[in-house]
Write a protein that binds this DNA or RNA. Structure first.
Length: 505
RNA sequence: GGUCCAUUCGUCUAGUGGCUAGGACGUCAGGUUUUCAUCCUGGUAACAGGGGUUCGAUUCCCCUAUGGACUACCA
């Protein structure tokens, strides 16, 4: 069987969108599943849209996700160069092959003239299509006598090379996901193959490269489906064997309609890019927002594909094993940020307390707190299952590090009785006399004390929690006071009574 | 406008010519937790509409509607 070789071929025009990451992922999964080769090719034939840093961003994104590139601009390989601009004008000879067999021609129409015709056609409700219906009226090597266009060539008049679309022919295409598609050439136009600057367009460049790189399967976004007939025709004109094609459905915005965009992410508070993009108009990234790559990849893989079982949690190896292109969906999927969080919650639970403590320590340092790893592990073990992100740990544990600044008004209203200050003062004295402060022993003692005093357990405990935590939240209270220690506990009781005590009634 | 593609709970989806149309996220309720959260249990909720074909269609065909992509010397 033929070696499976697939490529991910982005343009370095900015940060890589998660839709692009998913395309890369499906290529990667397909390659690895079939013991094939995963290639990264940079498609930068449009020099005006090149963005500094984009190539590095793309490669770092793939690396973060755990996709290893087999052949690429850094990795090398036997089918380079892997950056189209490094081939510069080599594509021209392939256009000339088409010129020689009559499937392409020179066109000298200026962009301004074409634009003018396009606008006037639109005004009459028609589409402007540069094809057999109109090309005899245009300035090209088909409509002009040979002596005339050769003269223009000699005078170095700017020109493009266009593909000569056959007249009224049904083109039959096959797609591994969509099945059979038939399009008549009368609706297609004579696409530009070589631009006036001598560079190839996508249609020529990707096809030549796919052929030269021995690509076996082209797995790309649905936006390419309309030009699939053109690509089929080009393969025929070249006399080359075609790869197999698979067009992936789009990633849609969570609400409403349409393609997922950066604006949606900004508006609804979730990233649309894998990594933070630092240039120009910056963009948030999953990595920096605290997502784990396993969660991100797992979530992305299931957006538009599933194995047909009820399994939802997959490691990369499990994804590779389960993946099949036939089970990729036809219709677009809406992106659900809530489910992305759920995946991260799951993967965070798999982390050890020590791993999380290390991550959390970095976060704390940024806040100006410095703590022993052992202490952080202890705290994290108490709140781990309630957080989805490392940054959430702070929100759940701030009271371990500092006494409360404010006290929840609702809790005061509900639990702060006239007798509360006196009771807490008694509790403070009771605690003051205790030597051990371990959670279990202290809990037993305090509960015994409340019972003996015949106080209302709920009132006392909640008021106690209020002065320690500042609100009605957090892990077991006795775990908290054990961690902060006796001195701090007594201090917080005193402070709480002082601040809240005179606010009531 | 034209061409092409798509359509199962709010979302991601499973599934079949005859099933109580399944799971997950969300949401709601109950339980656990003396708090909050987690967790557990349960509930809610879908075959876009209309025609066919058929003994029978969510499933096959057609039409409509809706959504999307493309329609550049961008990819």
């Amino acid at each position: 069987m033929q070696q499976v070789r697939v490529r991910f071929a982005p343009s370095p025009t900015g940060p890589l969108h998660i839709g692009g990451v998913r395309t890369a992922l499906y290529n990667y999964l397909f390659a690895k599943k079939n013991k094939g080769i995963f290639i990264l090719r940079i498609e930068d034939t449009d020099q005006t849209r090149f963005v500094e840093g984009a190539e590095e961003y793309i490669m770092e994104s793939l690396k973060w996700c755990g996709m290893k590139i087999d052949e690429g601009i850094i990795e090398g390989g036997n089918y380079g160069p892997y950056r189209q601009s490094d081939k510069k004008l080599q594509y021209r000879q392939y256009a000339d092959m088409l010129m020689n067999n009559g499937d392409a021609y020179y066109a000298f129409d200026t962009p301004g003239k074409l634009e003018e015709l396009r606008i006037s056609a639109e005004r009459e409700g028609n589409a402007f299509i540069y094809n057999a219906s109109i090309r005899d009226n245009m300035r090209n090597s088909l409509s002009m006598p040979e002596s005339k266009w050769k003269e223009l060539l000699e005078k170095e008049e700017p020109y493009v090379i266009r593909y000569k679309m056959p007249l009224n022919e049904d083109v039959h295409c096959d797609d591994m996901i969509r099945g059979h598609i038939v399009v008549n050439t009368s609706t297609l136009d004579d696409k530009v193959l070589i631009k006036a600057d001598g560079m190839p367009t996508y249609h020529l460049a990707h096809l030549v490269d796919d052929h030269l790189m021995k690509i076996s399967h082209v797995i790309r976004g649905e936006e390419w489906l309309p030009s699939l007939p053109l690509h089929f025709l080009l393969y025929r004109s070249f006399g080359w064997e075609k790869p197999l094609f698979a067009h992936l459905p789009l990633l849609l915005k969570p609400d409403g309609k349409g393609k997922l965009s950066k604006r949606d992410g900004d508006k609804m508070g979730f990233p649309v890019f894998p990594l933070f993009w630092p240039y120009g108009e910056t963009a948030k990234g999953y990595r920096e927002e605290g997502y784990y790559p396993e969660a991100f990849v797992n979530m992305l893989a299931l957006l538009g594909w599933n194995p047909g079982t009820e399994q939802e949690i997959f490691t990369m190896d499990e994804l590779i094993n389960a993946f099949s292109i036939e089970r990729v969906h036809k219709s677009g999927s809406r992106f659900d940020p809530e489910k992305a969080k759920w995946f991260n919650h799951h993967y965070l639970q798999l982390r050890s307390n020590n791993e999380l403590a290390l991550e959390f320590r970095d976060y704390l340092r940024a806040q100006g707190y410095h703590h022993d790893i052992g202490d952080l592990e202890a705290i994290i073990s108490l709140v781990k299952e309630r957080v989805s992100f490392v940054k959430d740990i702070w929100r759940e544990t701030d009271f371990f590090f500092k006494s409360p600044d404010v006290y929840d008004k609702e809790v005061i209203k509900k639990r702060w009785k006239p007798e509360t200050p006196a009771q807490l003062l008694e509790l403070k004295a009771f605690l003051d006399e205790r030597d051990t402060f371990t959670p279990q022993i202290t809990e037993q003692a305090v509960k015994g004390w409340i019972e003996k005093k015949e106080y209302n357990t709920g009132d006392v405990m909640n008021a106690f929690r209020l002065v320690i935590v500042g609100a009605s939240r957090g892990p077991h209270l006795f775990d908290i006071i054990s961690f902060i220690g006796k001195e701090e506990t007594l201090m917080r009781i005193e402070k709480g009574i002082a601040v809240i005590g005179n606010k009531v009634q």
